[in-house]
Structures are given as structure tokens and as C-alpha cells.
Design a binder for these strands. Structure first.
Ligand code: MN
Ligand code: MN
Ligand code: ZN
Ligand code: ZN
Lengths: 131, 131
DNA sequence: AATAGATTTATACTTATTCTAAATTGAAAT
DNA sequence: ATTTCAATTTAGAATAAGTATAAATCTATT
């Protein structure tokens, strides 16, 4: 099945994710929908996020926090989280192929994917800290 | 504070984690404690796991499943999960330094840590599949 | 308009984990 | 040996994120 059925609700959820640059949680998406005058059931937002994820229009991120985050960028990339302020930024540098090969040899796995979450201190928090 | 106070409960939890090779969840640890004749409160097991994690005697792993897993190996390493059977194996090959440096340059972050979860198919599942 | 399938809604439920307040433990001081 | 007191454990309630359910509603198609 390749057909995509974008209902009003799904389109609105998709719009919010697309127009967010901060990898929002489901709760964030809910709030932003309300700000825009919508009022969908919680279940509908979760269903829509799952639907859009299944259709590969968005990606679900598990960064080690309790709640999933959602990302409108579907090209291959990783994430970095600031230990101080919690912001999540994109990491576009691809995970080295040779390392993946090395892992395949070491473990005997056929390696399909890598999910990397880096931790550190963002430029902003770093400059604040210098006081 | 560096003093470590291992109560009976904490020691028993630590023993279970140390003697497990499969990165058990809190519920797994509970079950294994019961098998050994213990019967601690749920809260105590969670408290103990957190205590041991704080003291860096074990590590808490967030692999993208709903429940955390625990690891008695505290040396720097990563993990790979089989998409078919769910087993979790160690990845000892270190994440390339040069990639981390590249990420630091790209993002402006001071990079402290990398958490990598690889996905693929383990040797066992691969050979089963060949039928 | 009638039908059927998909979707939305409201709400109940599940799972993992944390919180709370009372009871217990155990080491140190008498 | 007994008292004392902080740390710990316990049982159970509370929370958070997400899923399941069943009834109501929407959306083509006949
Ligand atoms: Mn992203
Ligand atoms: Mn490990
Ligand atoms: Zn920051
Ligand atoms: Zn497998």
C-alpha cells in the first residue's frame, strides 16, 4: 500500500512537525495544535504521529528521555543533546562506514542502521559558562 | 561523597546484574532475585539500580525500548540489537575520535559522550533465515 | 438516501517508573 | 545492653507516556 490519506487532523499534525525546528514531543505537538485553534483528541495526535511515521513522512526519535520526539527531516542524520539546556541539534556528519564494517566483523551481525545520540554542551551554554 | 554503602538488597541486586550477560531490565532483575529466594519491594529494586548507577558500579542503558536495561560492564562500549530476536550484544570497537571531532566542528558543541545503538540481524537469526 | 470502510473521539487501560509515609534496620554513643 | 537517629526498606498510591476500545462521525460509492 503506498497511498497516503491525509485527513484534516493528519495534515495539521504534519504541518506542526514540519514548522518546528526543535524536535517536538507529542505533548509539544498537542500544545502547538491548540495554539493554532485546533482541538483534537490525544489519541488522534498519537495516531497521526504514528501514521506519518509509518508512511515515512516524519521520523520518531528516542533520545533517552521519557517521551519520543518527532522530526520532519527524514534524511539520514543523528542528534546531539545539550547537557545544560536540553536543546537538540542535528548532526549531519555521517557515521563512518568503516566503523560500521568493523562492528559487523566484531559482532557477526548484518548491520542495518545506527542511532547515535551525542551529549555535550552547546555553543550558547558554553559562552554563558565562561563567566 | 565516595563512600559506598552496600546493603543486603543492593548487594543482591548488584550480584544479579553482574551475573547476567543479557543486559536485564528492572523486571528481569526482580524475577532473578525471586528465583534466588529474595523478595524485595519493587521500589527497592529501582532504588538500588539507581544507587548503583549513581555510584558508577553499573550502567543504565536506554536502547529505545520502553524499559531501561542494566549493564555490569562499565568500560566504554556501545550496543547492537537484533531486529529479529531482540538480543543485545556488546560493541567494543570505539566510536572514531575523528568523527566526534568532526561533529564538534559542525555543531559548535563541546562533545562529551556518544551513545550508539546499532540495529541489524545477529549471526544466529541470519543462519536460521537462510532456510 | 443507503451502505461500508476509515477515522476520530472520549475514555479506560497498560507499562514503567517515581513518590510518599510509615515501619524497620543497624551503627554509634551512651 | 540500651538508646538514639539517620539511612533504608516497604507497600501502595501516584504519575507519565502511550495504546486499546467502542461508539460516533466522516467520506466516498452505489
Ligand atoms: Mn533531526
Ligand atoms: Mn553492554
Ligand atoms: Zn545548551
Ligand atoms: Zn537475532
Amino acid at each position: 500500500m503506498k497511498t497516503i490519506n491525509l485527513t484534516t487532523q493528519r495534515q495539521a499534525v504534519y504541518d506542526v512537525v514540519c514548522e518546528s525546528v526543535d524536535h517536538p514531543t507529542a505533548a509539544d505537538v498537542m500544545n502547538r495544535l491548540v495554539e493554532r485553534g485546533h482541538s483534537f483528541a490525544y489519541g488522534t495526535v498519537y495516531n497521526s504521529l504514528r501514521y506519518l511515521t509509518d508512511k515515512e513522512m516524519i521520523r520518531e526519535l528516542k533520545l533517552g528521555e521519557t517521551a519520543s520526539r518527532y522530526d520532519a527531516r527524514i534524511d539520514d542524520h543523528q542528534h546531539i543533546v545539550c547537557e545544560i539546556c536540553g536543546r537538540v541539534d542535528e548532526v549531519m556528519a555521517p557515521v563512518p562506514e568503516e566503523w560500521m564494517t568493523q562492528v559487523a566483523e566484531e559482532t557477526g551481525y548484518e548491520v542495518h542502521e545506527a542511532h547515535v545520540v551525542l551529549e555535550g554542551v552547546c555553543a550558547e551554554c558554553r559562552s554563558k559558562r565562561k563567566k
